[in-house]
């Protein structure tokens, strides 16, 4: 199995090289991609995309002159408006606001709370703090544990590109619910969480 930490560091270097034209560490990159197809492909993708994304949009000539005047008009209109935000909502949004409140209440009443949602982080073996810890538990990258879960097909297949599972780069977007897990399996995961 490849060392994901190496890939992660190399891809940072590749991005620096391609995107910021910083040509340091060329030799290190080429030595790595000689034996790592994924990183080589990533570099090729970036090189291919770079010219296509290097363009900049500018305001069309017809709008250049009047843009600041339009901004000024909006500022003056805001100063002079006779309704206040929040307290007096514009009529066009009153229905939307009411519907939003109703839908929010309905969604709140019928919300389903996942017991746990695991966030797998292959990047730097650190706990992620993306979501509220009261709703989610976290696992760090753990090959043995992942193998077990994978074999037991406990992970559903909705996810971001499963092929990057083991050889992936930044794994912290792999989210998996625990629907279908038995209590014993959840206990096992939580126990392992305490160990890692």
């Amino acid at each position: 199995m490849k060392n994901n930490k190496d890939c992660s560091a190399i891809r940072d270097m590749i991005e620096e090289n391609v995107l910021r034209e910083n040509s340091e560490k060329h030799a290190e990159i080429h030595k790595h991609i000689a034996s790592c197809i994924e990183c080589g492909k990533y570099m090729a993708d970036l090189v291919m995309l770079q010219p296509a994304t290097g363009y900049h949009y500018a305001l069309p000539g017809s709008e250049k002159g009047k843009f600041s005047a339009l901004v000024r008009t909006r500022i003056e209109a805001r100063k002079n408006r006779n309704w206040k935000p929040v307290l007096a909502v514009r009529p066009a949004f009153q229905i939307a606001l009411m519907m939003l409140v109703v839908v929010s209440v309905v969604l709140y009443l019928f919300r389903s709370e996942p017991e746990h949602l695991f966030v797998l982080d292959q990047t730097d073996l650190e706990f992620m703090t993306i979501y509220s810890p009261e709703d989610y538990a976290y696992i760090v990258y753990d090959e043995e544990l992942m193998s077990l879960l994978y074999e037991e097909t406990l992970f559903e297949e909705d996810t971001y590109m499963p092929e990057y599972w083991y050889n992936g780069y930044y794994g912290n977007e792999y989210f998996y619910g625990t629907d279908g897990l038995t209590d014993e399996e959840i206990d096992y995961i939580i126990q392992r969480l305490g160990e890692v």
């Binding site: 992660s8 891809r11 940072d12 991005e15 990533y42 993708d45 970036l46 291919m48 995309l49 982080d121 990047t123 730097d124 650190e126 992620m128 703090t129 993306i130 971001y160 590109m161 780069y169 930044y170 794994g171 912290n172 977007e173």
Partner: peptide
Amino acid sequence: VSTGSLKASFFHAVKKIT
């Protein structure tokens, strides 16, 4: 947003776009 999460987003974006 954390840099780790940004790196993941960027990586996935590059893959999807290419």
